[in-house]
Simulated scan of single mutants.
Amino acid sequence: MNAVPLSVLDLVPVSSGSSSATALRNTLDLARAAERAGYARYWLAEHHLNPGVAGSAPNVVIGAVAAVTSRIRVGSAATLVGNVRGLQIAETFGTLTGLYGPRFDLGLGRSGAPAPGTPKPPSLAPRADEVVDGLLVPAPFDLRIAPGSKFALQGELLGRVPGDVERFDGDLALVRELFAGTWTRDGAVVEAPPATGADVELWIHGSTGGESARVAGSLGLPYGANYHSSPGTVLASVAAYRAAFRPGVLAAPHVIVSADVVVGRTTEEADELAEGYGPWVHSIRSGAGAIPYPTPDAARATPFPDDAAAAVRDRLATRFVGDAGHVADRLEVLRRVTGADELLVTTITHDHDARVRSYELLAAEWARRAAVGEPA
């Protein structure tokens, strides 16, 4: 029996010809559909200054999602430490728990530029593509933040400075102690209601085999690894987490791994729905800011330069596109190779109804296989 839960990662994409307000309403509709379909978690990502992504305030949207659902766990993947202070993070999730009950997942991620001279994780060292037991692990993509890019501008507007990523350990400790009601100043416990005593599930998210993986493992916390955004480093990320793991919050390592998927009623329909992903993801990686997601016809009619295609080759090659059976097969390979305890899927199409249907088709196929114990 396939007992690995599926969950949803939502970036709140904005389609061409639409608006951020419509994208946000679509998120609430998708969340209701995901709960009906049996997904375990509904997580929101954080992106800024992107016309094609309305998920800039995930901690606000989380509350809206919780208000229109009743059972599915809701959370962030990830709340970026450094963009907001630890006290605010703890109080926000304590407030959400007070309003909607104990079904929130606080995913924390490191962000920002490291201090000058900080060595890169070994997982970013150049190498060729690899196929590991049927899973493509492409050459790692090293994102360099160019001056004048939207990445640099958001850092400026959020008050980021080189090296402030090193605050992560301290802010993480603060959040944990505020939830536990054990944070002290001058020998006295300082409470921060409604954070104090809030039953919030804490996760750490990372893309490389670097500090995030080490911190999550050393504290015995669950870990989120990104195959969808950094497929070339996912195995190093998971391995570093497991190597660093010491019993803490959890007695054993627990990993969720993300994947980009598009499911259609047929392979041909899925291929059609998947059009436009290359230019869209390139607009993010290039630092220009996400474009509104194009229609398939517009994507085909707009030339996509070879150098741009090469810059997102790893993302295109590792997106699982097809009918429900094919995508479920690929997810099973990802689960087997990474040893994932859970899988997190993200789907982006121009048409909202098609996006909802993609999640529904995948959930139905996953549940069918679990019910009959069908091997992949």
Score class of each variant (00 low, 15 high):
residue 69 T to Y: 00
residue 143 L to M: 14
residue 160 R to K: 09
residue 121 P to A: 13
residue 255 V to P: 01
residue 31 A to R: 10
residue 340 A to T: 01
residue 349 T to H: 05
residue 281 V to D: 06
residue 217 G to P: 01
residue 90 A to C: 08
residue 102 P to E: 14
residue 74 V to R: 02
residue 96 L to V: 04
residue 323 D to Q: 00
residue 299 A to D: 10
residue 360 E to M: 07
residue 88 Q to G: 07
residue 169 D to E: 12
residue 15 S to C: 10
residue 110 R to M: 05
residue 107 G to L: 01
residue 88 Q to F: 06
residue 60 V to F: 04
residue 284 I to Y: 05
residue 204 I to A: 04
residue 183 W to M: 09
residue 33 A to I: 13
residue 64 A to S: 12
residue 65 V to P: 01
residue 113 A to D: 07
residue 213 A to N: 10
residue 208 T to G: 08
residue 367 A to V: 11
residue 289 G to H: 11
residue 55 G to K: 15
residue 200 V to N: 10
residue 317 A to K: 11
residue 309 A to C: 11
residue 245 F to N: 09
residue 55 G to H: 01
residue 181 G to Y: 00
residue 280 W to A: 15
residue 320 F to L: 15
residue 360 E to Y: 03
residue 69 T to C: 07
residue 215 V to T: 11
residue 350 H to T: 15
residue 146 A to S: 14
residue 251 A to S: 12
residue 11 L to S: 08
residue 360 E to H: 06
residue 68 V to K: 02
residue 324 A to V: 07
residue 51 P to D: 14
residue 271 D to F: 07
residue 215 V to Y: 06
residue 286 S to R: 00
residue 327 V to W: 03
residue 323 D to S: 09
residue 61 V to D: 04
residue 322 G to K: 00
residue 295 T to V: 04
residue 109 G to D: 08
residue 229 S to F: 12
residue 83 N to E: 15
residue 308 A to N: 13
residue 329 D to V: 01
residue 79 T to V: 13
residue 106 L to D: 01
residue 176 R to L: 15
residue 44 L to E: 01
residue 209 G to I: 15
residue 92 T to F: 01
residue 175 V to R: 02
residue 313 R to T: 07
residue 319 R to L: 02
residue 41 R to H: 10
residue 150 K to G: 10
residue 58 P to Y: 05
residue 316 L to I: 14
residue 165 V to F: 03
residue 187 G to E: 04
residue 330 R to P: 01
residue 79 T to A: 10
residue 352 H to S: 11
residue 206 G to W: 00
residue 67 A to D: 11
residue 118 T to A: 08
residue 81 V to G: 02
residue 189 V to Q: 04
residue 118 T to I: 08
residue 288 A to Q: 14
residue 141 F to V: 15
residue 178 L to A: 11
residue 372 V to C: 05
residue 135 L to R: 09
residue 270 A to K: 09
residue 307 D to G: 13
